[in-house]
Simulated assay, not measured.
Amino acid sequence: MKLDSNNHSVFSMYYQLVLVVKYRRKVIDDTISDYAKDKFISLSEKYNITLVEWNHNCDHIHIFFKAQPNSELSKFINAYKSASSRLIKKDFPHVRKKLWKEMFWSRSFCLLTTGGSSIEVVKAYIETQGMK
């Protein structure tokens, strides 16, 4: 296992994040997913977060990323959800018609550590999402 390091620590911190569209509205296509992914990458740099794998279904996204001990995960997730929601609704106005009260993401999210599974197992799982 390859470990990451910074000035004061050695670590391996991998997470799986699942974000669901409010009321599971089916609004995510490849274009919106790619757009949301670009926003994730641009915002994640500020929080010392690196994208490893990304995939989507029509009503949710799966994100596999690694972080550092100083990454503020809940602040990052909330900032990402807020920014991506606002920008998706602005740049894809047709999506607004399918939402309930213009809320894009569900208030909750699922964040899992990947300590129980190997990284390859998690990556393979995410790669197969949306292939049903």
Rank of each mutant, 00 (worst) to 15 (best):
H8N: 09
Y125G: 07
F76R: 00
K37R: 13
I61A: 04
D30K: 09
K39H: 10
S82C: 13
I49K: 00
F11Y: 08
K46R: 10
L3A: 12
S5W: 07
V18W: 01
K132T: 10
I61Q: 03
S42V: 02
S12Y: 09
N55T: 06
R25Y: 10
W105C: 13
S71A: 05
Q129E: 06
Y35P: 08
N70P: 07
T114Q: 02
C58N: 12
R24L: 01
V122W: 07
F92S: 09
C58E: 12
S71D: 12
I49T: 01
D4G: 11
I61T: 06
F92C: 13
D4W: 09
F104R: 08
K37G: 06
V121I: 13
A36F: 04
G115Q: 02
I28Y: 02
E45R: 11
D29T: 08
S12N: 09
S108V: 09
L99W: 09
I61L: 02
S33C: 08
K101W: 10
E72L: 06
M13N: 01
K132C: 06
A124M: 05
I88L: 15
Q16V: 05
H62E: 11
I126M: 07
D91T: 15
G116K: 08
P93G: 15
F11I: 01
T50A: 08
Y80N: 07
R96D: 13
A79V: 05
G130N: 09
S117L: 14
Y15K: 01
S42T: 10
K75E: 14
F76W: 02
L51W: 03
Y14R: 02
E45A: 05
N7V: 10
W105Y: 12
F40E: 01
N78C: 07
K89S: 13
T50P: 02
S117P: 04
L3T: 02
E120D: 11
K89N: 12
H56G: 05
E127P: 00
K97Q: 14
A124N: 07
L111K: 06
F65P: 00
I32F: 10
N7T: 13
M103G: 08
I49N: 00
Q16L: 12
P93H: 15
W105M: 13
C58R: 13
M103K: 15
G116L: 12
G115K: 00
Y80Q: 09
I41G: 02
S44C: 02
I49W: 01
A67K: 00
I32T: 09
G115R: 00
S9G: 03
W100T: 07
V10P: 00
K66N: 04
M103E: 13
S118D: 09
S44W: 03
C58Y: 13
R86I: 15
K90N: 14
K89V: 14
N7Y: 15
L112P: 00
R107D: 15
F104N: 10
K39S: 07
V52Y: 05
S33D: 10
E45P: 03
K22L: 08
W54G: 01
I61K: 03
T114F: 07
D91H: 15
V20I: 11
D30S: 09
N48A: 13
S84T: 15
K81V: 04
T31K: 11
V21M: 03
T31C: 06
V27I: 15
L51C: 02
A79Y: 07
K2D: 00
Q16C: 06
L112R: 07
S44F: 03
F65L: 06
I63N: 00
Q16Y: 05
K98E: 15
D29K: 05
I126V: 08
P69Q: 05
M13W: 03
A36Q: 11
E53R: 00
V121T: 08
